[in-house]
Design a protein around this nucleic acid. Structure first.
Length: 768
DNA sequence: TTGGATCGGCTTTTT
DNA sequence: GCCGATCCAA
């Protein structure tokens, strides 16, 4: 009773599903049914080609995407015949659907001993990495003032992503910085080894290394995986590319899927050439283009195409809309970031009132995580349910990290970074001085600290103290060792939850939190959340559960328990939104400096990536797209500046954009918003509401016409009396410039002389 | 050793 | 404006 796998697929999609032999490159434009093709392809392999599921590997970019794919394959419920593989549900476990990082972690756990990795190795995250970099820099005598540790870490990470070791980095160094980074890299690797740890980049790099040094291991995987599928191939780095090649080298059935126009991770060493040059490395590769977009309205597609067309370095490809034109887009300027948030919330409730959409249809997207804050506040204030995707990582919280550090040390006694974090937490009288001493001791013996201390646990009274530790430290250190040994014994005989309870009791953590701060209850709740997560690993074999739990914590950034079934607005970064779709999308903060981001503005390549990011955002939208910006931008330090409209807005053709309709919306601080919910441009009649003067230049530029295309911008001349939304009344002193950057100098009664760009200042002529 | 106070630096996106 | 590192006094 299963559906025909090929039913409902267009010709290109069918081709992509049914070419099962040899290398295959699928260029999949946004909304072209990519996930559908991948899942149906897997189903086709299993059901039509009789490939056992355990011999198929599908690699995704995020854990979320992996889960999503599993769900699409097997259906949301047990009885979901629309899922291509639902009748094979029992074989679900056999498929390998994972991220590169998670897959590599598994490989290294199993075969890492061939390259000197212990089974229980720790996985270091960015914070841990930074700790090690700083330590390595100190040993190498590098001043963090001149060599920012983060930058050094960036160089190391990039090198690793490109499969370069310290030696080749040093050889290729042509300045002091790179040379320093090379030296740090060398020592950093040693420290990782000492800690019995790998970092994120090592997961990939060292797996490549393992496959090179242990042909048997490679062969095992090569034999096993008849088919390899890599999603989001435009965002793979050199290491991931190499891994794909290694794994598929025997059967050559490698299918990669991606879209160069959606490459947004070059900052993480992703190399778009992997997809662009795929044909070079695999000359016999077949190529399928999926160009028909089933997701978005015609107007949205037009806007997306117009935006991406401004990129100079892009492949020759097209997307075609299949839906009707749809409603006009909305481009709107608000006074400041807060008002922008209220605007979005207001529009969403207008839309809800018409019953066309519900809350979970709506997403608000932004460039930086920090921008979620204003949105959250507006939602809270208006009583709108929302959920923030990602954001402050759960595992990032201090209390959670403390507990994880304990668990890591239990699991891996060599994990010095964790030891340093918790040896005096709660206070045991082992302060910085003592820790320094212990670190020196470790360095002296080229050993992690904990193993050196362990003899203290078995020491009888009167026996000599090892390493001449000062008598003052013997007591606290001994009790610390006893605690840890007790917990390590516990880890060998009890499940993760019981172990966690034993730990929490052993260090009296609840008391520790209570004594430490006011919001200790929240923190304790986070610890309990961690305990809940540990429950998932309770059933596993004792000893394996802890390792698996820690790996999960390291590789799964967020608690994805936030169920998507509840009706709520989604707040999400543009990066994380990749691969998702929503009927209603707001992209907020369309100002220079935010999108494109400041850090990307002076490099043309990075600027193009920012544009792709905007393109990704636009193409997430199915029906109603809102693009907003704030006139005043809150800076990081104190006074905010004026937000210049993002250059990307100029690429949104004005004929796709709704005019600002009459103001009937609800109020915010005396501010009314027009109601765009009907999406009918014809009703729109721009209204000059003096009370709503802070709607700002919405009527001038907010309609997305782009300053230079707007013939209606009021012409000001010297001597005109004008009114500005913020500065009040004033007199035009002079005007200069053309079109988009037409500038007026105005002397205001109160605010003094200001030079304003007509394109975003809200100036109104005052008749007198 | 610890806790408080002050200074200074930086400020994106994520496995 | 915030967080972290650093300094200083008890």
């Amino acid at each position: 009773m299963s559906v025909d796998i090929l039913e409902g697929l267009n010709e290109a999609q069918r081709t992509a599903v049914t070419i099962t032999e040899g290398p295959l490159l699928i260029i999949a434009g946004p909304g072209s049914g990519k996930t559908r093709v991948i899942t149906h392809r897997i189903a086709y392999l299993v059901r039509e080609m009789d490939v056992p599921p355990w011999r198929i590997m599908a690699v995704t970019f995020t854990n979320k995407a992996a889960n999503e794919m599993r769900q699409r394959l097997f259906g949301k419920s047990d009885e979901d015949p629309s899922a291509p593989l639902f009748d094979q549900r029992s074989r679900a476990q056999e498929l390998t659907v994972r991220t590169f990082h998670a897959f590599c972690a598994t490989v290294l756990r199993r075969f890492g001993h061939y390259i000197g990795l212990d089974q229980g190795f720790s996985i270091f995250d960015t914070d841990d990495q930074l700790t090690l970099v700083k330590a390595a820099m100190e040993e190498e005598g590098l001043d963090p003032k001149y060599f920012p540790p983060r930058a050094i870490l960036g160089v190391i990470s990039r090198a690793k992503s490109n499969l370069k070791d310290a030696q080749s980095l040093l050889l290729g160094a042509d300045n002091a910085f790179e040379e320093g980074a090379g030296r740090v890299y060398e020592r950093y690797q040693e420290l990782l080894h000492l800690n019995g740890a790998v970092d994120f980049d090592d997961l990939l790099m060292r797996t490549v290394e393992l496959f090179q040094r242990s042909p048997d291991t490679l062969e095992y995987y090569q034999e096993r995986f008849l088919h390899l599928l890599v999603d989001e191939f435009q965002d793979t780095n050199v290491a991931q590319y190499e891994l794909s090649k290694q794994i598929s080298d025997l059967h050559k059935n490698i299918c990669v899927v991606g879209d160069p126009d959606q490459s947004i991770y070059s900052w993480r060493s992703a190399d778009v050439r992997n997809i662009l040059d795929f044909k070079k490395d695999y000359p016999d590769a077949r190529v399928v283009n999926l160009e028909i977009n089933y997701r978005s309205t015609g107007k949205i597609i037009k806007a997306a195409k117009s935006v991406i067309a401004s990129n100079r370095h892009r492949p020759d490809k097209d997307i075609r809309a299949s839906r009707d034109e749809g409603k006009p887009l909305v481009v709107y300027e608000t006074y400041d970031t807060e008002e922008e948030a209220y605007f979005a919330v207001t529009q969403i409730s207008n839309l809800l009132r018409r019953k066309d959409f519900n809350l979970s249809d709506c997403a608000v997207m932004y460039r930086t995580n920090a921008q979620s804050r204003a949105m959250e506040e507006a939602c809270l204030h208006r009583g709108m349910p929302y959920h923030v995707v990602g954001g402050i990582k759960f595992y990032h919280r201090a209390e959670v990290r403390d507990i994880i550090a304990y668990l890591r040390l239990i699991n891996n006694p060599g994990d010095d970074v964790s030891l340093q974090r918790i040896i005096n937490k709660p206070r045991r009288g082992i302060g910085n001085k003592s820790l320094d001493m212990l670190q020196d001791l470790g360095r002296e013996h080229e050993s992690p600290i904990y193993p050196l201390l362990r003899p203290l646990g078995k020491r009888k009274k009167g026996e000599p103290v090892p390493y001449g530790l000062s008598s003052r430290l013997v007591k606290p250190l001994t009790s610390f060792v006893n605690l840890m040994e007790d917990l390590r014994d516990g880890a060998a005989e009890m499940g993760t939850v019981k172990l966690l309870d034993k730990l929490l009791r052993g260090i009296n953590y609840q008391e520790f939190l209570r004594a430490a701060g006011e919001d200790w209850e929240d923190k304790w709740e986070n610890v309990r959340e961690l305990r809940r997560a540990a429950g998932e690993y309770d059933g596993m074999e004792v000893g394996e559960g802890l390792t698996a739990f820690l790996e999960h914590l390291a590789l799964v950034a967020e608690v994805d328990s936030l169920d998507e079934t509840t009706d709520a607005i989604t707040l999400i970064t543009l990066h994380q939104a990749k691969g998702l779709e929503f009927p209603v999308v707001f992209i907020i903060g369309l100002q220079e400096g935010l999108l494109p981001h400041m850090r990307s503005m002076d490099d043309p390549e990075q600027l193009e990536e920012e544009r792709r990011l905007f393109y990704v955002g636009i193409t997430r939208c199915m029906d109603r797209l809102f693009l907003t910006r704030a006139f005043r931008q809150r800076g990081y330090r104190g006074e905010g500046g004026v937000g210049i409209p993002s250059r990307f807005l100029r690429d949104v053709p004005s004929e796709l954009v709704a005019e600002v309709p009459q103001i009937v919306g609800s109020r915010y601080g005396g501010q009314s918003f027009p109601d765009f919910s009907s999406g009918e441009a014809s009703v729109a009649r721009r209204q000059r509401a003096t009370s709503a003067v802070r709607v700002g230049s919405a009527g001038v530029n907010g309609a997305g016409t782009g300053p230079d295309k707007d013939g209606e911008a009021p012409a000001f001349k010297e001597g005109d009396r004008v009114r500005h939304g913020v500065f009040g009344e004033g007199l035009v002193l002079k005007t200069a410039g053309q079109a988009s950057d037409r500038e007026v100098t105005v002397v205001f009664r109160e605010a003094g002389v200001k030079r304003l760009l007509l394109s975003f200042a809200n100036l109104k002529k005052v008749e007198s």
